[in-house]
């Protein structure tokens, strides 16, 4: 399979505290990769470096065969191809659900309003929120907001989707609906990098698990192996705490 993300020796520190300490990995297309690890292990920072919401101190990232650097047009191109879903949804509160989804397709992809709306409606149907088109984000539950956020990212027709703890700020009863949506996406062959604490999702959906600790990848294996027969001592410790 084709490599769509190539990371070499990524280093990032905040105020002289090293968060990522030499991360290297390749991710192939149509793979679902779950990034696990204790809090503070650098999972989110790693993900945010991938679409340059965070600027690495050193190291190289190639996405879809293009180097990720400071060049603004390159960045805007990259971000069109790489969708991102945030822990706190980050929907635009002043826009309706449909406007949230159509804004970027209209302004960036230059779709007509009609085309963009049709695309948005199809996506809303897919995430099961066709009846919420004209609602404002704060009229929706957390789970609904996150599904709109997924639809918003998908409306750009990205080749890769990044999920930054997409269920961590949800009430427990809403986690399922968001994970279902993500499972559907995975089945359709979307390349996904998911930072998560949902072990069930990782076990069931992931093709591969990266386990981060102390800013390094300490384990990189298939889910079955990861959960049943972890190689690394720190992985065992982590799993013994949460399972």
């Amino acid at each position: 399979m084709k490599k769509v993300i190539e990371v070499k020796n990524l280093v990032k520190s905040f105020n002289s505290k090293i968060v990522l300490n030499g991360i290297s990995c390749d991710i192939e297309s149509h793979q679902v990769v779950c990034v696990l690890g204790p809090s503070g292990s650098g999972k989110s920072t790693f993900l945010r470096c991938l679409n340059r919401l965070e600027k690495p101190d050193s190291g190289e990232i190639q996405i879809l065969d293009r180097a990720v650097n400071d060049h603004e047009e390159g960045l805007n191109f990259l971000r069109k191809e790489v969708g991102m879903v945030f822990q706190k949804f980050n929907l635009f509160p002043h826009l309706t659900v449909v406007e949230n989804i159509t804004l970027s397709p209209i302004k960036v992809l230059k779709l007509s309003k009609k085309e963009a709306t049709e695309r948005a409606e199809a996506l809303l149907e897919k995430v099961g929120l066709s009846d919420k088109k004209t609602a404002y984000p704060n009229q929706l539950s957390g789970g609904q907001q996150q599904r709109v956020a997924i639809a918003r990212a998908l409306a750009m027709k990205p080749k890769i989707m990044l999920f930054d703890e997409p269920t961590s700020s949800l009430d427990p009863e809403m986690v399922g609906e968001v994970l279902e949506t993500m499972k559907t996406l995975a089945k359709e062959g979307m390349t996904m990098v998911v930072v998560t604490h949902e072990m069930g999702f990782a076990r069931e959906v992931a093709h591969r698990i990266l386990f981060l600790d102390g800013g390094q990848i300490v384990e990189d294996s298939k889910p079955l192996e990861f959960f049943n027969n972890p190689k690394n001592e720190r992985t065992r410790l982590f799993l013994s705490k949460i399972l």
């Binding site: 679409n51 919401l53 971000r79 945030f86 980050n90 804004l103 970027s104 960036v108 990212a153 750009m156």
Partner: peptide, 11 residues
């Protein structure tokens, strides 16, 4: 997060 969301959508 508002700016990040917009930027992540390619704006």
């Amino acid at each position: 997060g508002q700016e990040e969301a917009a930027r992540s959508l390619g704006m």
